[in-house]
């Protein structure tokens, strides 16, 4: 499903060139549950950003569902992000002026889906995250765990192939964190490919496959 070949990402910081990712090869199959771990600056977030088409590699190929993304323009990448990839961020990234339902609806709004169809999908997504009774609440009226559940509902509403989670429990207490982990694991069990970037060893060990990065290179690829 995902194939990365000889992928590198360099950044220029002042006069220095930093290799965030250095000739990485990786293959992820459909429905896999993968965790990416590593110390700060190891390149795990850069890898996640490239997997989510938020960033582009300096060198190498990234093939998603048989499509080479290296030659895509901005609009084509936006379309792939809209239809095939779901994001869950550490800081939730909900739009504060919109209600929970409106935040969940947003990817469909951008995709130009009719309001009638959107409403039905929003209700399904809300029931997935058990927040039907909070649909009219603004983010500021929700707890951290509830906000992250809204973000998860938003990420799955377009029925993507891959869910990318960047430190999904990083801003949550342990109880809420476990709830969120269970929720995304349930989505994985339902067939969604799940890729989680985390510092949390416990969370990383729950996945089927654990990759460790150091200085932009994969130093360990552990499958259960």
């Amino acid at each position: 499903m995902i194939r990365i070949e000889n992928l590198s990402r360099k950044f220029e910081v002042g006069n220095q060139i930093v290799r965030a990712l250095d000739h990485i090869d990786l293959e992820i199959t459909k429905g896999e549950y993968l965790s990416i771990m590593g110390v700060s600056g190891s390149g795990k977030s850069t890898l996640l950003n490239i997997l989510g088409l938020l960033d582009t590699p300096t060198k190498g190929d990234y093939i998603l569902s048989g499509i080479n993304t290296s030659e895509m323009n901005d609009d084509e990448m936006a379309h792939i992000r809209s239809t095939k990839i779901g994001f869950v961020f550490q800081s939730f990234h909900l739009i504060p002026r919109l209600t929970a339902a409106e935040n969940i609806e947003m990817p469909m709004v951008l995709a130009g889906i009719k309001p009638k169809d959107r409403q039905e999908k929003v209700e399904i997504a809300l029931s997935h995250v058990s927040l039907n009774d909070r649909s009219d609440h603004k983010p500021e009226q929700l707890s951290g765990g509830q906000r992250q559940r809204v973000a998860i509902a938003r990420s799955i509403v377009m029925e993507p192939d891959v869910l990318l989670a960047d430190e999904p429990t990083g801003n949550l207490d342990s109880t809420s964190g476990i709830e969120i982990v269970r929720l995304i694991e349930d989505l994985n069990k339902a067939g969604l490919t799940l890729i989680v970037v985390t510092h949390d060893r416990k969370l990383g060990n729950r996945s089927d496959r654990l990759i460790r990065l150091l200085d932009g290179k994969i130093i360990d690829d552990d499958r259960k």
Partner: peptide, 16 residues
């Protein structure tokens, strides 16, 4: 900026 980034992450095109 963060909102613009989010909109792009969930599929917004530059034109939108």
């Amino acid at each position: 900026q963060s909102e613009i980034g989010l909109l792009k992450a969930i599929g917004a095109k530059n034109k939108q």
